[in-house]
């Protein structure tokens, strides 16, 4: 097995994966440098989420290798991968995925509590991060009483509060309006840069990708030079599709 380059915090080689036979990734290789913000772009169904799942150890690729800090992730057992996710990775999903029974600061402090941090320390860190993301006033409110943008910022705070090495953000702004979208992305990227956290950001939005240092475009599960497809004129499409239905 070839060891990965030293300056890459995550390194994946020729990942292949299919969901019950329908192909999701076919031969993706990617290296994430330490402290950079990497955008994985592409339309829906291009394999972004599957790539992030493979890189973060939630999914073992059917073929290919994933290395984190020179440790192979693809050979780890489920228990070790779970621990890696808990200790080193943060995850931001398109939906906030908060625990409905816990209030805002408890949700943010939950990763720390799961690592066994004392209650007082976890609370302090959680409240600090909520203040930093301008949602300190909602600290004692339950998620269902908050707005979608506030919930998503809580999810960002939860990912940042555990001070992970890498944060995986899978379309973190998909369900938000433009104002909220900018706010969430700006807080995420600036906090990541100031704390030296690596971010892998999956997005279909070219505008969002401009915030990143580097972009990996995906199309149909393959890395491509650009995702811009040739424009299809109406008449051409009609002629090509000559099914009679």
């Amino acid at each position: 097995m070839e060891a990965p380059p030293d300056n890459d915090v995550i390194w994946a080689r020729s990942l292949h994966h299919s969901h019950n036979g329908s192909p999701a990734l076919s031969g993706v290789s990617v290296g994430v440098h330490d402290g950079e913000i990497l955008a994985v772009t592409g339309p829906r169904g291009s394999g972004k989420t599957t790539l992030l799942h493979c890189l973060s150890g939630q999914l073992v690729p059917q073929q290919g290798e994933v290395w984190f800090n020179s440790v192979p992730v693809h050979t780890m057992g489920p228990r070790l991968r779970e621990r890696l996710r808990r200790d080193k990775f943060g995850w931001i999903a398109p939906e906030p995925q908060l625990v409905p029974e816990l209030n805002a600061w408890e949700n943010v402090a939950l990763p720390l509590l799961l690592r066994g941090a004392p209650h007082r320390e976890a609370k302090k860190t959680g409240l600090e991060w909520l203040e930093r993301l301008d949602i300190g006033v909602c600290a004692k409110k339950r998620p269902h009483t908050l707005l979608q943008g506030q919930r998503q910022r809580i999810a960002v705070a939860r990912a940042l509060a555990a001070s992970p090495s890498v944060i995986f953000a899978d379309e973190p702004t998909a369900a938000l309006h433009r104002a909220d979208r900018t706010h969430v992305l700006r807080t995420l990227t600036s906090a990541a840069r100031s704390h030296g956290i690596t971010v892998v950001l999956a997005t279909h939005d070219a505008e969002v990708a401009t915030l990143a240092d580097r972009t990996v475009p995906l199309l149909d599960g393959r890395p491509v030079a650009t995702v811009a497809l040739p424009g299809v004129s109406d008449a051409e499409g009609r002629a090509a599709c000559s099914l009679s239905v």
Binding site: Q58, R85, Q97, L98, V99, P111
Partner: peptide, 11 residues
């Protein structure tokens, strides 16, 4: 909720 917790890496 359980799925969200597992995604966080909760054992």
């Amino acid at each position: 909720t359980a799925r969200a917790l597992l995604r966080l890496g909760a054992p």
